[in-house]
C-alpha cells in the first residue's frame, strides 16, 4: 500500500523516519532525548526542525546520519534502512547523506590545511585518481562554496567563522550527497555572515538539487529557508506543517508561544506576546501525558493522562494536542 502511495505522490519522500527513539542512560535514569518521532522529507525540499535547547533536534539529526545509534524506530533513506546498515553499507550511505555542523571552530580539525579537510572524503572513498585530479576537485569545491583559491594551503586558525563554515560545507559536498543534515549551521555566526551562508546553502540547493534537514533554534532563519517545519518539544514533535501556514497560524499552544516570542526588527510590529510560565521540565524518565502540559495555559488534568498523538487536524497540518480542534 505504501509503495502505491509513494508511486502516486508527485514527490516521493527521500527520507522516511518513523517511531524514532533515542534514550541516553544517565546517572538518574533514562534521558528521553528523542521520543517517538516520525516525519518524512521530500526530495529537493527543506524540512526545518525548530525547538529550544535540549528538545532533541540535534540528536535527531545525528541519528539520521548514524552518529548516534537509535534506541528504536526506523530511518528509511531511499528505501534503505539506515539503522540496520552494515559498516560497508553505511560507508556507502555516507556518500549520499552528509552533515554540516554547528560550531565552525570545533567542527574542523585545527591541524589540517583547508585542502586536507575538504579533500579527505575524496581520499577515503577513493573518488579521485592521482594528485592532479585531487587538486582540481578540491579547488573546484572551494570555488563552489566561495573560498578564495589562495586559501588552499591555509590553516583554519587563519580564517574567520564564516570561511570556516564554508570549509565545513565544502567537506559535506565533496562526495556529491543528495541529502544534508544542517545542524544549526549559522547560529554561531554574525548576522551579516549568517546571511552569506544562508544564501550559499539556498544557491547550492537550487544548483545541485539537495535535500536539507535544517535544524535551528532561530525561527526567522528557519522560516526563510524551509518548505515545511516541525516543532519539537522535549523529544517529541508537537506540530508539523507547511512553513507559510504554520507561521501564519500556529495551532499547538507551544507553537503559538514560540512564534509569538520572536523579536521582530520593525516598528510597531509588537504583537500579543504569550509569556509561558516556568521552564522545560526534566527529560529524565518523563511522566506520561503531554510534555507541555505543565506550562500550558489550556492544560486540564486529562492532558496528563496519555501522550497526545500527532494527528492531522486540517489538511497538511499535524498537531499533537488533545485540544487541537479548538485552536484551528
Amino acid at each position: 500500500m505504501s509503495a502505491a502511495k509513494q508511486a502516486s505522490g508527485a514527490a516521493a519522500p527521500i527520507l522516511r523516519v518513523s517511531g524514532l527513539k533515542k534514550y541516553f542512560q544517565s546517572a538518574h535514569g533514562k534521558l528521553h532525548a528523542v521520543d517517538d518521532v516520525s516525519f518524512d522529507i521530500a526530495k529537493g525540499k527543506t524540512l526545518g526542525m525548530v525547538g529550544e535547547s535540549g528538545c532533541g533536534k540535534s540528536t535527531t539529526g545525528r541519528l539520521l546520519v548514524r552518529l548516534h545509534e537509535a534506541t528504536a524506530g526506523s530511518i528509511l533513506y531511499d528505501g534503505q534502512e539506515v539503522t540496520a546498515a552494515s559498516d560497508r553499507e553505511l560507508k556507502k550511505l555516507r556518500t549520499r547523506m552528509q552533515m554540516i555542523f554547528q560550531d565552525p571552530y570545533s567542527s574542523i580539525n585545527p591541524r589540517h590545511t583547508v585542502a586536507n579537510i575538504i579533500g579527505e572524503p575524496l581520499k577515503i572513498h577513493k573518488k579521485v585518481k592521482g594528485a592532479a585530479e585531487y587538486e582540481d576537485r578540491v579547488r573546484s569545491l572551494m570555488a563552489t562554496v566561495g573560498l578564495a583559491d589562495r586559501l588552499y594551503d591555509a590553516y583554519p586558525h587563519e580564517l574567520d567563522g564564516g570561511r570556516r563554515q564554508r570549509i565545513g560545507i565544502a567537506r559535506a559536498l565533496a562526495l556529491d550527497p543528495e541529502f544534508i543534515v544542517c545542524d544549526e549551521p549559522v547560529s554561531a555566526l554574525d548576522v551579516s555572515i549568517q546571511a552569506q551562508i544562508l544564501n550559499l546553502l539556498m544557491d547550492l540547493q537550487d544548483k545541485l538539487g539537495l535535500t536539507y534537514l535544517f535544524i535551528t533554534h532561530d525561527l526567522s532563519v528557519v522560516k526563510h529557508i524551509s518548505d515545511d517545519i516541525v516543532i519539537m518539544y522535549m523529544g517529541q514533535i508537537v506540530e508539523r506543517g507547511p512553513t507559510e501556514e504554520l507561521f501564519a497560524r500556529p495551532i499547538h499552544p507551544y507553537g503559538q508561544a514560540l512564534l509569538s516570542a520572536i523579536p521582530v526588527p520593525k516598528l510597531n510590529a509588537r504583537k500579543e506576546r504569550i509569556i509561558l510560565k516556568s521552564e522545560v521540565s526534566s527529560p529524565i524518565d518523563p511522566k506520561p501525558g503531554c510534555r507541555f502540559a505543565p506550562r500550558c495555559a489550556y492544560a486540564s488534568p486529562e492532558c496528563a493522562a496519555a501522550d497526545p498523538a500527532l494527528r492531522e487536524v486540517s489538511p497538511g497540518r499535524y498537531v499533537a494536542c488533545r485540544l487541537a480542534e479548538q485552536f484551528v
Partner: peptide, 11 residues
C-alpha cells in the same frame, strides 16, 4: 569534538 563527528560522517 565536532570535527571527530565530522570525520565519522565522511566515512
Amino acid at each position: 569534538q565536532e570535527f571527530v563527528e565530522a570525520a565519522h560522517c565522511i566515512g
